[in-house]
Design a protein around this nucleic acid. Sequence first.
DNA 1: CTCTTTTTTTGCATCATCCAAATATTATCC
DNA 2: GGATAATATTTGGATGATGCAAAAAAAGAG
Lengths: 140, 140
Amino acid sequence: MILVKQAGVYVNILNCKLKKYLAEVFKKNNVNLTAEQYLVMDTLWNEGTLTQQEIAFIIQKDKNSVTQFIDNLEKKGLVARSVSKEDRRVNNIVVTKEGMALKDSTKQLAIETMNKALEGIPEKDVLVFVDVLKKVCANI
Amino acid sequence: MILVKQAGVYVNILNCKLKKYLAEVFKKNNVNLTAEQYLVMDTLWNEGTLTQQEIAFIIQKDKNSVTQFIDNLEKKGLVARSVSKEDRRVNNIVVTKEGMALKDSTKQLAIETMNKALEGIPEKDVLVFVDVLKKVCANI
DNA sequence: CTCTTTTTTTGCATCATCCAAATATTATCC
DNA sequence: GGATAATATTTGGATGATGCAAAAAAAGAG
């Protein structure tokens, strides 16, 4: 069916728009994070200290990307690398005080952003939407 | 609801995975196109000759990006810029013979790719999925 | 004819992603 | 114990997408 093709196109367009929209909202509120950096911060806020590998697994990005994300977040003082005592190859990524200070307001901004994006869409459709997103992710 | 936040995350992850997957399929079949370049070619295959501005509108990317896409497609010999006779500011983007030669097989690859990604998902859910994608795009 | 608008290009910057090779450390095997 | 393999991360180099601002070229309005 034609829809199949459209799905890929719209995922691409939507991703772009969402990133741009989130960037705008963040900028307006003086939050200096890209979408991917927010993804990392959110993961750390939720899960606590993680290794880079664990972060990569959770957000499904490759290790090189994660290295870069952590580099940038570290420069901003939001996280810190701390060499693991059990295995010195491993970096434990810790959220700093500055990083924790951003937690609530930033999460709120992200939620509001998505709420606005999903405005007017019936909840049952949103449920199906997220379900399909997850299933397709798992398919690939 | 928690799902709202997840939607954004999964759109990001899915977009990445889809692009990567499509790149793999294309590479395996000796099609040398990025996802965005395919988007442009597909638009031109469907609509015929278009100006850069029209392409930008349809695929919802900005003019600078389109300039770059056309640059790269032109280098590959798949499209050509042709200055409009009515308005010499405008480039009409024409698909070349080489570009047309790729049409059917490449479109087929893209459809197969999406079919595989959507494998096992009930058609009614796919319909809702695409519908939500479009609505959210329109919301932002 | 001047001023404004429109279409596209250019240059520059950042960011995301990828690949391959390097580094440092730990685990394993003999 | 020492050579070898495996693991976590970094580095360097590349491409590609996107964004912003300014320039160039042409058209339109007054």
